[in-house]
């Protein structure tokens, strides 16, 4: 999908994901985690038809399985003993905690994965430039330099090959040739970078305070979204402080009954990108109907 949630201002989407991450980590009630997980699955399907998930779900499941199995075995905290394994008690609390922790891990990983799809390298750099302009500038220069160095090293190695320098019999000789190649790369790059420095000065680098080209602009809907997100976060935090959406595992399982209002707000928060995407789809349908 090109429009929808992917198209909102990077700062808004970054704030959303930060909020979501904090919520996931704080509100560890299985129901809440399940809600977040479901929403993320749908969001994954919306953003790239689930391509990203398809390649990693096996790894995620394996990891979840390991956590679920290991946690009760190594942790004997909790008061309800189910059984004994090699003289160690297996408690109900640590079994449940294993499940919840596995779910938490997977949800977080899935969130990071979708966040990476939404906040592309470009957008990430834009965000960095906001906070750390110099660092962002250096990152861009490095991004430019790495492929350049790579192609130069390939050229050097090609020449070394035709000169028979790689024919060294022993391992030490090979290491020597490799070091030599790196040395050539370094000297060559230093030589070229002198020219780059002159060229940078020629285009006025360092002559005044740098500004930065703004590729993304806040629109009305971005402000609107920020406002909704603010209101929702306030109410979620308010409920959270009172203990809603949380579960205590040790010494024994304890949780507050589900607060309908709090859970609904949480669902809306998690499903916010899905709604935005759906809105986009409906809008297209409407446009087609009207024309």
């Amino acid at each position: 999908m090109i429009g929808g949630f992917v198209s909102i201002h990077p700062m808004v989407s970054a704030l959303y994901f930060i909020g979501l991450l904090l919520h996931i980590m704080w509100l560890n009630h299985p129901l809440y985690l399940l809600i977040a997980w479901c929403c993320l699955v749908i969001l994954h399907l919306q953003t790239d038809n689930g391509e990203g998930l398809r390649s990693v779900w096996k790894g995620y499941s394996m990891m979840a399985l390991v956590v679920i199995v290991i946690n009760p075995l190594v942790s004997s905290r909790g008061s309800t003993i189910l059984t004994y394994f090699r003289n160690r008690p297996i408690t109900l609390e640590s079994v449940v905690y294993g499940f919840v922790f596995a779910l938490l891990l997977i949800t977080m990983l899935m969130m990071f994965q979708v966040a990476q799809k939404v906040i592309t390298e470009d957008r990430f750099l834009y965000l960095t430039a906001w906070v750390l302009p110099r660092t962002a500038f250096v990152i861009v220069m490095i991004q430019r330099l790495i492929p350049l160095l790579h192609s130069r090293l390939q050229e050097i190695n090609a020449v070394a090959k035709t000169q028979g320098r790689f024919n060294a019999a022993n391992r030490l000789g090979k290491v020597r040739v490799a070091m030599e190649s790196l040395n050539v790369l370094l000297v060559w790059t230093l030589e070229e970078s002198l020219h780059t420095a002159v060229s940078m000065r020629a285009s006025g680098y360092g002559s005044s305070l740098r500004s930065s080209y703004v590729r993304y602009r806040m629109e009305t809907r971005d402000y609107f979204l920020l406002m909704i997100m603010g209101v929702m976060t306030a109410s979620i935090v308010l409920g959270g402080v009172q203990g809603y959406g949380q579960m205590n595992f040790y010494p024994s399982l304890a949780w507050k009954p589900v607060h309908l209002m709090h859970t609904s707000v949480y669902i809306i928060w998690c499903a916010l990108p899905i709604f935005i995407n759906l809105g986009e789809i409906i809008q297209w349908k409407l446009i087609r109907l009207k024309t």
């Binding site: 861009v140 220069m141 991004q143 060229s199 005044s208 500004s211 080209y213």
Partner: peptide, 22 residues
């Protein structure tokens, strides 16, 4: 190659203007 410091075309185009604080 020596004159390009940024990693994408549009960044390089803006580079000079950014230097001068436009």
């Amino acid at each position: 190659d020596n004159q390009i410091v940024m990693s994408t075309v549009w960044q390089q185009l803006c580079y000079g203007m950014e230097n001068l604080g436009y």
